[in-house]
Every structure is written in C-alpha cells, then in structure tokens.
Design a protein around this nucleic acid. Sequence first.
DNA 1: TCTGGGGTCCTAGGACCC
DNA 2: TCTGGGGTCCTAGGACCC
Length: 422
Amino acid sequence: MSREKIFALVDCNNFYVSCERLFNPIIKNRPAVVLSNNDSCVISRSNEAKNLGIKMGDPLFKIENKINLYNIAVFSSNFSLYGDISSRVMEIIRKFSPDIEIYSIDEAFINLTDINMNLDNYGISIVKTVEQWTGIPVSVGMATTKTLAKIATSIAKKHKKFRGFFNMTRHSDIKRILEITPIDDVWGIGHKYAKKTKYFRIENAYQFSKLPDTFIKKYFSVNGLKTAMELRGVSVIPMELFSTRKSIVVSRSFKEPLMELDELKAAFVYFSTLAGEKLRRERVETKFIKIFIKTNRFDKGNYLYNEDFMLLPNYTNTTKDIINTSLLLLNRIYHNNIKYKKAGILFTNLVSSNNKQWDIFCNSAEYKKKNQLSKSMDTINKRYGSYTVKYANINLSSKFLPSQKRKSKEYTTNWKELATVK
DNA sequence: TCTGGGGTCCTAGGACCC
DNA sequence: TCTGGGGTCCTAGGACCC
C-alpha cells in the first residue's frame, strides 16, 4: 500500500483585481472589478465588490448604479499584465515543490507527498512568501486528493481566522466538512449536474460521495464518478506535469456587429497575427486551421453560425500562412447583409515544433525564411510593444478592435508603460 | 439596448468495413 | 430490397473548468 498522497492548491485571491491593485495602491480598500473584453461583464471582483452583491459575469450596464453609488473602481482587462504577474507567482510556488501543475492563470497544484516537513508551517510559509515577494494574496488548501484540496482552499479563503491556509490532510472530521459543502460548490459539478443532484435530493458533497458507483456513472458519467472517489479520499485525478496544448483559439466579440467583408478581413488579419504569436510562443505548429463567424447568439430565431476549415499540406506557425488561409476561408463562408457579432480562428492537432515530421514535399528553405521573419517580429513586438511591426494589411483603426476604455497600463511588459515612481 | 475568451474530456451516433 | 452482428474511427455536441 503506497503512502497517502498530499496535494496543495495555491489559489490567488481575486487575481485580476489584485494585479490592478499592485499598481494602484489607492484602491487598496475600495471595491474594485475587472471587466471582460469590450468592457462587457465582470470577470473579477474584490471582496468589497462581492459584499456589495456584484456577481461573476454581471453585465456592466446592470451594475452602473452600484458603481456610482459605492465608488467602485472599474478596469478593462489587461491580460499581458496578468500573465506576467502570474508567471512570477508560479516561479515562487515552484520553489516549494517542483512537482507543480499550473492549472490556470491564478491556480497551481503542487504535490507535497514527499515533503518531510511540518505541513502547517509549510502551507503558512507559501502564503506569506508569495504575498511578500509579489504582493498577490493567495489561499492554500491541503488534502489527500485534488478535489478535496479545492474544498480546503475555499475554506481557507472564506474564513479569515485561517489566515489563508487550511490543512485537511489529517482532519478528524472530513465528513462534517463535506456535509456543509453544497454540492454545486464541488469541483466537477457544474450547472447541469447541480440541477440533476437537486432532482435526486442530493444537497451536499457528503451525500454525493455516498451514492452507488453505478448510479453516479449512469447520470454523471465517469467524471462524476471520479469526483465521488476523490471526495471519499481516493486520489484518481493525477497531477498533469507535462501537459501539451491540444488546441489554440483566438476569438472576439465585436462591440458593433460587422457586415462588410473588408471589416471582417481586417479582423481575421488581427486574429491571425495573435494566433501566430501564440503558436510560436507555445512552440507548436499545425496543419488544421478552422475559422468561424457568427451572429448574436442572444438573437433568438436569427442565430447564424458559419465555419470552414482547411488541412494544409505542411505544418506551419507562420503568420503569413495563417493570414492567407483564414482570408481564403472567410471568402468561402462570408455572406452579405449579415450582422456578424463574433468571429475566431482555431487550431487543433498541434505538434511540437521540435519533433514534427518533415513532409516530403515541404520546401524547407522557404519555410525557414517565413519562420525567421515571424520570429523577428515577435522579438521586436515583445520588446517595444505589440504591433510595433506588423503585416501591412493589418488595419488597427478598424472598428473590430475591442473597446477597452478603462485599461491600466502594461507596467511590466511594455517599455513605454513602465510604472513611474513619484 | 448592453450579456467574454480560452481551454479539456466524454459520449452518442453516424459512416464504413467485414 | 430485405436481412444481422460486430468492430473501428470520427465528429458534433454537451458537460466541465478558469
């Protein structure tokens, strides 16, 4: 029998808002929110904003009143800033265990099974170190499975008295904790499954964990069964240490619907540029390029979705190839007099640039030339800011560009916007 | 009126083959 | 045209996550 595993989840508190606060100490205790693309809806809230009843996903127009009434600080999202802060946080967490799974921009699991130290001290030390070195507050939860660690973290976050850390590994009363954990708070139980559990009169995590396996599998599939096992303390969701990306998407909703082909073309040049950068950053390539255009999904009865794809003869990650392909596909699926509200480009079947198969007919000299051009552009744009150099046909003044009226500066990633010291 | 973007995994069902 | 079983592979759609 192998030793019981120990997982810790490190979760940044209100991550995007916390990032904004680093550079705006003035809003330290003011309620604050960060908005999604086009400044449409709320995607991050400070504790004060949560206490004012602002919900995740609330559209901006719905909370205008509260914003004025309570002087809420509002930010457009600034993902290059958040991404940069995130990687700093992750590097610090890595010092506590190299066995790390970066689960999302603001969360990481670490495996502490082989750490021969007092776990309580270790957990408190993680919370303190990350906060001191980056200024980002985090919560840490420990347990014998990832699903339980999720619960432990939310307890650490919810109750001030724990100071950001909760250890569930040797808790004498896990049953009691699961009983007070609503089933829809459990990792792996989403909207639809929560509704089903209600139907079966399952209210909390403990009740769910006690259901017969065959029943769970029938109504909640194997993933539901995994969740139940993990709640019972049996670790069945392993750490994913070397996840390789399987798909890449770049898509945007337009503030104003686009109708003209030229407008959409500009949008796809923009998407292709971002998508190419992403492929190269991840060191992957693709043959499979799909694009889609669609109308407003809330416009019932008139919803229209069009997509098309192409399988390229050779793997690529060069912006030029992606632009050419996406414009060709756009010509195929575009129709007159349609109000397109959202569009995007998608790559699947990615392969690593390092070990891809060379095709017999691939012109490798041509390939290397295009590749070199793309890479040089990336280097320049990284150093001097996005779109310092770009393909001539990209038209950044077009109306497809996301509207971000309240964006903070790129303090850490753009030379032109370094924070100034007063 | 306004309602994001980017991912992964599982399953059911169709196409195709013997 | 109808008849049957069994297997694989692929894809669309649905579920979940942040």
